[in-house]
Lab assay of single mutants.
Amino acid sequence: GVRVRALYDYDGQEQDELSFKAGDELTKLGEEDEQGWCRGRLDSGQLGLYPANYVEAI
């Protein structure tokens, strides 16, 4: 996976979405899909989806 850092807070709206705060680091686990979602893993171990444009590569 690729380490990325959140640029903005994001509150997951669905069960399969991650929630994070600006500045949090997570691991991107795949390329974004056509809707702009990426699969990732928080350092807590939680897996889920997040909007790709909310993070930057570290």
Results as ranks from 00 to 15, higher is better:
Arg41Gln: 15
Leu18Tyr: 01
Glu56Thr: 11
Asn53Lys: 09
Cys38Asp: 04
Lys28Val: 11
Gly12Asn: 10
Tyr8His: 06
Asp33Ile: 05
Glu14Arg: 12
Glu14Ile: 11
Val2Gly: 11
Gln13Pro: 05
Gln13Ile: 08
Phe20Gly: 02
Lys21Gly: 06
Gly45Ser: 03
Glu25Asn: 13
Arg39Lys: 12
Val2Ala: 07
Leu29His: 05
Leu26Ile: 08
Asp16Gln: 11
Asp9Val: 01
Arg39Glu: 15
Tyr54Arg: 14
Leu29Thr: 11
Ala52Tyr: 05
Glu56Ala: 07
Trp37Glu: 03
Ser44Asn: 15
Val4Gly: 03
Ala52His: 10
Ala52Asn: 07
Thr27Asn: 13
Tyr10Gly: 00
Glu32Gly: 12
Gln46Arg: 12
Gly36Leu: 04
Thr27Gly: 02
Gly30Trp: 07
Val2Asp: 12
Leu47Met: 14
Arg5Thr: 15
Gly30Arg: 08
Asp16Asn: 07
Arg3His: 02
Tyr10Leu: 07
Phe20Glu: 01
Glu32Gln: 14
Glu17Met: 12
Lys28Met: 15
Leu29Gly: 02
Lys21Pro: 00
Gly23Lys: 05
Phe20Ser: 00
Val55Arg: 01
Gly48Arg: 01
Leu49Val: 14
Glu34Ile: 11
Phe20Val: 02
Glu25Cys: 14
Ala57Gly: 13
Glu14Gln: 08
Ala57Met: 15
Arg3Met: 06
Glu31Asp: 06
Asn53Thr: 14
Leu18Arg: 01
Val4Glu: 04
Gln15Glu: 11
Leu18Ala: 01
Val55Pro: 01
Gly12His: 07
Glu25Met: 12
Arg3Phe: 05
Asp11Tyr: 09
Gln15Lys: 10
Leu7Cys: 09
Arg39Ala: 13
Gly23Trp: 03
Leu49Trp: 08
Tyr54Val: 10
Gln15Trp: 07
Tyr54Leu: 12
Tyr50Met: 10
Phe20Cys: 01
Ala57Pro: 15
Tyr10Ser: 02
Pro51Glu: 03
Cys38Gly: 06
Asp33Asn: 14
Glu14Thr: 10
Gln35His: 12
Glu56Pro: 02
Tyr54Cys: 12
Glu34Met: 15
Gln35Met: 14
Thr27Asp: 07
Glu34Ala: 14
Ala22Asn: 05
Gln13Thr: 12
Lys21Ile: 09
Gly45His: 01
Leu49Cys: 14
Pro51Cys: 08
Glu56Tyr: 05
Lys28Phe: 14
